[in-house]
Design a binder for these strands. Sequence first.
DNA 1: AACACTGACAACCGCCAGGAC
DNA 2: AGTCCTGGCGGTTGTCAGTGT
Length: 205
Amino acid sequence: MATTESYEYERKKGLWNAEEDTVLINYVKKHGKGKWNRIPKVTGLKRSGKSCRLRWMNYLTPEVKRGDFSEEEEDLVIRLHNLLGNRWSLIAGRIPGRTDNQVKNFWNTHLSKKLGVQKNKVCVIPKCMPIVETEGNCNSASKGTSGEGNKLVYESCWSDDLMDFSSMHEGFMADDFESTFSFANSVDLCTPYFGEAFHHCFFGL
DNA sequence: AACACTGACAACCGCCAGGAC
DNA sequence: AGTCCTGGCGGTTGTCAGTGT
């Protein structure tokens, strides 16, 4: 027999059913988003606050778009991933109606295979600069290579326009501009980002 | 028809940052 | 200043439907 205390920590896992969804939707309608950890206590739902938040954000919220990614969305994901690496929330933030989880799944199941991107390997190969290859994601790219010398390589290759873009988007990009950029191991993918198409990708959104 | 395999997607886990106390 | 709580993130795992043998 479960004690009161053990009952309190009893948590259901796995897929959500319609009844649980209804409880969660009603709670958010009444109390709004946030304070997710209160939901199990208030509603009796046997889910963790984190699970409730995830369910709402990725599935139940009215803003989320269901169904396949369009060609435009796919193109955008590819471009943004080349610029931002595995920063799924940032990428999703630029694609209306798509969540970070959707983008991540779409990348892992469709695009990584389609593009032949190796896991945990980031290749930096814009045509205008020597190849710099590092292990890990884009965050580690700047740390994992040759420090100041590497930075010089980066800086010598950014066009003036690109640096302007950096200063204009300090809030959007990370504090360390260089480290936010990575490139898939395909020259064809890299090429468009240095020129009009690059600007279209961001400023045209 | 039954089983194995695969792909797609939903959900969980561990870690981290920021805010409240 | 230190601790706790909460929310957010990316990586990973679980589940299930579809397909092949």
